[in-house]
Design a protein around this nucleic acid. Sequence first.
DNA 1: CCAACGCAAGAGCACTGCTCTCGTTTTTGT
DNA 2: ACAAAAACGAGAGCAGTGCTCTTGCGTTGG
Lengths: 271, 271
Amino acid sequence: MTAIRGARERARSEITEAIKDEARKQLAAEGAAKLSLRAVARELGMASSALYRYFPSRDDLLTALIVDAYNALGAAAERARDAHAEPPAAPGTTTRRPESGATSRPEKAARGEARARAAEHALAQWCAICTAVRDWALAHPHEYALIYGSPVPGYHAPHTTTEPAARVGLALIGVARDAHAAGLLKEPAEPLPDAVVADALALGAELDVELPPAVLARLIGAWAQLFGLLSFELFGQFNRVVEARGAFFEQAVRQLAGSVGLVAPGPHATT
Amino acid sequence: MTAIRGARERARSEITEAIKDEARKQLAAEGAAKLSLRAVARELGMASSALYRYFPSRDDLLTALIVDAYNALGAAAERARDAHAEPPAAPGTTTRRPESGATSRPEKAARGEARARAAEHALAQWCAICTAVRDWALAHPHEYALIYGSPVPGYHAPHTTTEPAARVGLALIGVARDAHAAGLLKEPAEPLPDAVVADALALGAELDVELPPAVLARLIGAWAQLFGLLSFELFGQFNRVVEARGAFFEQAVRQLAGSVGLVAPGPHATT
DNA sequence: CCAACGCAAGAGCACTGCTCTCGTTTTTGT
DNA sequence: ACAAAAACGAGAGCAGTGCTCTTGCGTTGG
């Protein structure tokens, strides 16, 4: 059955993967523009024409690489988020504070401290996602350029790319959603154009996420700024302008978190 | 002299310009990747080899186009800024307010109103620059992709591009500088990493501009976000996410202005 | 006036994406 | 189990590319 007919299909998927691997290698070495089907075939020891059995055109190979890159980046972001997932109030796992007074402290203060810890957690998650995205981009600059640089000329993103492309955006929105559900989000009070509100509501409904339109709008802005910063850094726009790239990025990301309402709480009270 | 020997040189510069024009046409039609020297030569009725007398390689042609694009974009931004330049308190030019009471009003209130008007002007200038940049980008998407998309593979920006590339950034910084000089800038009080402060100070010294490091850092962030927004809009990342692109952009730009300290004053007082 | 230089044209090289054909191998239907 | 059908690999070939080299023509300057 699947084992017999699988022989071919497994060989096919293996070769497909080998082609993509070799293509990725050339991509990392020379960039998307210099990726050559013939060179890939040559390196794999097959005729160039045979490659067309696996990818009907060069653009299709690129599309496959794009999807993979989106998924790799999205996976990196989600991994960072999950590594900073909120621990379910397990005692003893985090920094144990002196419990000398037992429950003598007013419950309100304890709650406030828990809130502060949760808020800090949300902020850490936000920063972790952003840093993971940056790390991935720095490690795979050409793949980053492939997905966030100029689109290839005649190419219109097929539907298969839109879902992987949304993963980091969704991760960021998720952090905000959780914070909002926990009442940790300071909603910005600003007048919003009706059209923007409509877009935000539609987006919130489509993603099934409960967030004020203003927050959603700012999230999209933060999303764009995140990749604006990365594109500028990777594409050389920061040359002779920003030298401490990492520190600047960290700083900008924290400010970004603040702009969507994720505030870093002071030790006791947030002003 | 220059008129006689200019015969050749004028012909040369004319042909150079014709080549760039035709290249721009193909760029706008098909994108940078499909720009072909042979096609340009064909369209101009000359042998492809003749073209190499004017541009030693395809990358050099692209570089010339990049410089031109940076300059066109920068000029558009500066034009928008100058069109919204602060009128030198010429009476009768702006909305004339009723002077019934002559100088009966307290001087302090009049000054406050002038400050509010100036602040509004700075904000208008900021928004005008950003909108002009967006308009240019929407009108010349491929040229925008050429300068703010993925860099061409083997290509490292020569020194001639750095100056034109800085023009819109400088325009934005100029607005902030003027506002700061007029005492209209609300400096953000936030802890800044030392390395970022150092970069900001170095940049401020190099540009000879008096601005607090925090403002400069936020200006760079705003600069990156501006082009992050545009890249996302132009490269299709906003498909099925943001529909009211213009309104969203306007809104984001206003928020950006606020983040660098350019506050839109209320009719009488700023909270 | 003639050498020197700038210029245009053509041929040619190595490369690309892609198509078509032609055997071979593997899968599948009966 | 055998034949039909589908998938596959290799080669030749087409049109196109960037770029180099050589050749001849025209203008420029000593």
